[in-house]
Design a protein around this nucleic acid. Sequence first.
DNA 1: AGATCATCTTGACGCCGTTCAGATAGCTGT
DNA 2: ACAGCTATCTGAACGGCGTCAAGATGATCT
Lengths: 215, 215
Amino acid sequence: MSETGSAETPTAARPYHHGDLSRALVAAGRRILEADGPAALSLRAVAREAGVSPAAPYHHFKDKVELLDAVAEEGWHELGEAIAKGRAAAPTPRSVMSEIGVAYVRFARENPALYRLMYHAACDRAMMPDHAKDDNSAWRHVEEALIEAGADPADEQEMKLAQIAAWCTVHGVAEMAGFKEFEPLREAMGGEEPFVRALINHVGIFARRTRAHHD
Amino acid sequence: MSETGSAETPTAARPYHHGDLSRALVAAGRRILEADGPAALSLRAVAREAGVSPAAPYHHFKDKVELLDAVAEEGWHELGEAIAKGRAAAPTPRSVMSEIGVAYVRFARENPALYRLMYHAACDRAMMPDHAKDDNSAWRHVEEALIEAGADPADEQEMKLAQIAAWCTVHGVAEMAGFKEFEPLREAMGGEEPFVRALINHVGIFARRTRAHHD
DNA sequence: AGATCATCTTGACGCCGTTCAGATAGCTGT
DNA sequence: ACAGCTATCTGAACGGCGTCAAGATGATCT
């Protein structure tokens, strides 16, 4: 591991063929995203940050889009992990959904630029990320949590509806929890976390019955 | 009204100073947005579509952003109108919220690129559009509808929470209702409209109690 | 008529995404 | 050890972008 450079941090001078550019590019992308915002996230800037020429990325990604997709996918993976933690930390089965929602929003609010990139990519192709059926995906966690919370797995339609509705709500909260006009209310409730919690618990699916109701 | 050109459609040759460029630019922007998608929405393309030089817009908008903001604002205005219609069409007071939600999502789904532009702008400045307190704004309509549906205007915190939660949910639904993985369910429910309706009615706030519950 | 002033055009700058021909070096088989 | 192969990276170039400064144009006012 001296300097042949398959490691992730080739502190030595570039091994000239750099070892592992694709990973380095994704990392550089995330760094730029967090440091300078999404407007600064150009292919050239990523290449610059990684220390290679502007054309180098094209040997690893066919597109700028494909590179950003890779960054987004990393985000989805981490979101899955964050949700898994929230799920595990739930005190009772009935609170699992709520805890997942809070964890989801917390991740989005702690990585706002990344989260926006993730959803931008998803909306562009009008679907969830491909690995949404992986065991540890955020999507899968919600599905399982619903069952855990008492939903009836036999009623597929009802299950799906609940899952989608829950997802839509937390997504909305994630995007708007920081809006300025909510600041008085946020303050009154003791900060963003309680505010988000109240918001989520306010929406039926999370805090209350998980079965159908059709009046 | 022969050709002096303060009208909105100067069918005659450009009155050379064009009459009303700012409006024409916004219209051109919307046309491009719907026809060629958001990726094609460049300042130069808008100028081209309006038949002026690339620098001309700078005499009416300080920025590309400011132009797009104007397009977005037009969108918010129309969303307000769409919601007003949905609200008026509600059969019972208890169904007002639900009808508003459906109208909201319908507008977003019928103008997807415009809606995305609107929300992009809103998220960028982390707040609703400035005219959110206008009498006919979408935001205001939700507030009034909540009261109409039986919410207690005295409990300000509860009111705000319900309003925000409802908004977050419809926004989420608006952005994801068209996702591909939901297609089987959408079909099974008879198309997008019933699907959206079910989703919205699924989420407490819209179909059920509007008062607090705190367990 | 002449002056004023908002409006529009021309031309330029630097940055962007992307491509392509060529340089570089690790790998393979001998 | 050497030659060739192939993956990887560089340099230079293209058109398009947002933006700006300088000049042209014409409506309006006196």
